[in-house]
Design a protein around this nucleic acid. Structure first.
Lengths: 248, 248
DNA sequence: AGGTGTGAATACGTTCACAGCG
DNA sequence: CGCTGTGAACGTATTCACACCT
């Protein structure tokens, strides 16, 4: 209600493109909507209802409608959302039209896999540099890129105007890598190393820890086991489902 | 206040071990506390204050104290928390003393890296089986395990009483793999494939999508860029930091 | 009708601030 | 006196239910 810039074409960012501050929870779901929309577009759908898109994205329709309403979106009452238009809107909001340069630090087990991960390129990301501290790895060719030494990280990251740095090093070196990235002007970091990174407040850090995910699942296993073992308990109470049946 | 089972030794699960239902947000942070505690234990610390542990885990102390209070935890006022005791408590709650069997489906780029990921074994998880649908990969040895065909997944997963299944296949086959896991009695799934899995409500699914993380960072890059471009805006407003300086 | 957009109601999570214990 | 544990206040996210548009 505060600012509805209906007439602004998304791609055209002349001055200030009316950037709404979306709730974090909404932002985290937009990529999922986008994936679902791309899938729908491939199957030839022109429009989707909130119900349909919500099912494809694994959320309920009320949440989806509220999320989309935040970005002042176009839907047609009685019809639904225009798939192509919504794709453009979300890609614009997420800044995926910018084809951002990504560098990857740490070409071990995991880093090697990330370097070859197709999902990065298929969204608007270009992996443009690989780094490792191990002299034996420097010079190695991975996916058309040559691994460079981390000593050169700061210089090269600045030269290539890297937008996002991905850290896949052992925990001990992660902070030093983060410092180098920050010094090179990188303001977004995706961290796969366990542990806390300390960075200036204008730098965004997202963390992915595979072991943590397993531990959370382990907790739920433990909980489920102790429920079924309950003396007076029913054998399998229908837990409040997090991700319910969606009927593909 | 409702149930404080102070006298119950964690490891001893004779009957019903007073399982509190912790908030999801708390559960998600427990592994982080655990990692910080292990680190502290290595440096020889016997006790920590909420302030100290919070800093090591990257949260503020009020949050940490509330989280720990939920598991009816032992802290000594005026002193802090006993590191060793808290480690035991959290490991018990998370069910990490059960040494759960994990299987990994999809030994491609990412799956290969996961199979060799040290972080799994170092917490209480044993990767006991690897599967792939590609006949060329079946028979391959990775980290001491032989890759088996996904046709045998259901049988083997049941035999080995797998607790957690990790899906690292292409999106197209993820649902079929999930179905097989569920049929084998697996009730926890960690999914690296993009897309929504539909499973019975008693099965927990956690999803990790590397491309989504980058897209979220991209949004924030976009937002930061549009802020600094603001006509009347200051050049770098101190955004409400998500992960602030922690002073290592 | 059919389906979006949205106030109002509810649930959940975080932060404050301090009582009370060691 | 220091630090935990916790009610109360606040803020954020989800869900409901329906007015309103096509």
């Amino acid at each position: 209600m505060s600012q509805q810039r209906h007439g602004s074409t998304p791609g055209e960012a002349d001055g200030v493109p009316a950037f709404p501050d979306l709730p974090e929870a909404t932002i985290a779901r937009l990529p999922e909507y986008l994936r679902a929309l791309h899938h729908l577009a491939e199957t030839g759908a022109e429009t989707v209802s909130s119900e349909g898109l919500a099912a494809a994205a694994g959320v309920n329709s009320a949440k989806l409608r509220k999320d989309l309403s935040h970005l002042g979106s176009y839907g047609t009452r009685g019809v639904g959302y225009d798939v192509a238009l919504l794709v453009d809107q979300i890609e614009y909001i997420l800044g995926l039209d910018k084809n951002r340069a990504v560098c990857l630090v740490g070409v071990g087990n995991l880093g090697h896999a990330l370097a070859g991960y197709a999902g990065f390129a298929s969204r608007g990301f270009r992996v443009v540099a690989l780094f490792d501290a191990d002299p034996k790895k420097v010079g190695e060719q991975i996916n058309g890129l040559t691994v460079q030494h981390t000593d050169d990280l700061e210089r090269i990251a600045a030269e290539e105007s890297i937008a996002i740095g991905v850290i896949a090093t052992p925990p001990g070196t992660a902070q030093a890598v983060a410092d180098a990235l920050v010094a090179a002007g990188v303001t977004s970091i995706l961290n796969f190393a366990p542990g806390v990174l300390s960075v200036p407040s204008n730098v965004d850090v997202r963390k992915v820890d595979l072991a943590i995910e397993l531990q959370i699942l382990s907790f739920h296993e433990h909980r489920k086991a102790s429920l079924t073992a309950l003396p007076g308990g029913r054998s399998a109470p229908p837990a409040s489902g997090d991700q319910e049946a969606v009927g593909s």
